[in-house]
């Protein structure tokens, strides 16, 4: 899933400093699962904003709403009636960064991202998420025991660990596993370590962001 985390409250307060009334919109997709922008987090942020502004003697009205998803126009359309009637100064989106962009495309009102959309990843344990993929657009992990050296090696190395790999840790930080050590262990476990002996060829990055912003068109699904 897309993993995100909320921006610091000071940054958000600065964004809304000039506003009197805002619509805070959560999302029930990925950001609910990673506890960053679901109904619960919308409630927490709304109260925090109200309290801070009340204390500053400049109250802010925050209307809370959570959509099924913000990355689908049909759900974003549901904001239409609310935005038409209620005199909002801005929309604050608690979805991943797709949400605020869909809202911006649809409505002539200022939109602010409440989250920093950080990576494609998963939960390692309760409250800990890690990056697993950088959407290079041409998955090659079957060559590496099912582990991704593109996203998970700090240097995206395709031919084995750099000289800085020590004690299974990446040279960049003891907090980062050296994925190449894990790939090696895994290939030993699978009895396929010989496969790592071949030089892995230069990658074609044109399927990645390097080829420009990407689009997937599925003719079979188009209406």
């Amino acid at each position: 899933m897309v993993v995100a985390e909320r921006k610091p409250i000071e940054e958000i307060l600065a964004m809304v400093a000039d506003f009197k009334k805002v619509l805070l919109v959560g999302c029930k997709g990925c950001v609910t699962v990673c506890c960053a922008g679901g109904t619960k987090e919308v409630g927490i942020l709304a109260s925090a904003l109200r309290i801070a502004r009340k204390k500053a003697g400049n109250p802010l009205e925050v209307v809370e709403h959570t959509l099924e998803r913000q990355c689908d126009p049909e759900y974003v359309d549901q904001l239409g009636p609310m935005l038409q009637e209620n005199g909002f100064d801005a929309v604050l989106s608690m979805a991943c960064s797709v949400g605020p962009q869909f809202i911006a495309k649809k409505y002539p009102i200022q939109v602010f991202p409440m989250l920093n959309t950080t990576f494609i990843g998963g939960a390692l344990e309760h409250g800990v998420w890690a990056e697993f993929c950088q959407s290079c657009g041409n998955c090659i992990i079957h060559n590496f025991g099912g582990l991704c050296p593109i996203a998970r090696c700090s240097k995206s190395l395709m031919n084995g660990p750099c000289g800085g790999s020590a004690n299974k840790q990446c040279e960049v930080s003891p907090e980062i596993d050296c994925i190449w050590h894990l790939i090696y262990d895994r290939m030993v476990e699978l009895g396929q370590v010989e496969k790592l002996r071949n030089v892995f060829p230069i990658k074609d990055w044109s399927t990645s962001r390097d080829g420009g912003p990407r689009k997937i068109v599925r003719e079979d699904l188009k209406l």
């Binding site: 700090s154 800085g164 030089v199």
Partner: peptide
């Protein structure tokens, strides 16, 4: 060479490249 990670240097805010790795660079 692969090169030390940019995090260690005097411009840790930089964007790194790593288009190819050191083994692939040899082949180039």
């Amino acid at each position: 060479l692969s090169g030390d990670h940019n995090k260690f240097g005097d411009h840790p805010q930089s964007k790194n490249v790593f288009d190819v790795d050191s083994v692939q660079l040899i082949s180039i």
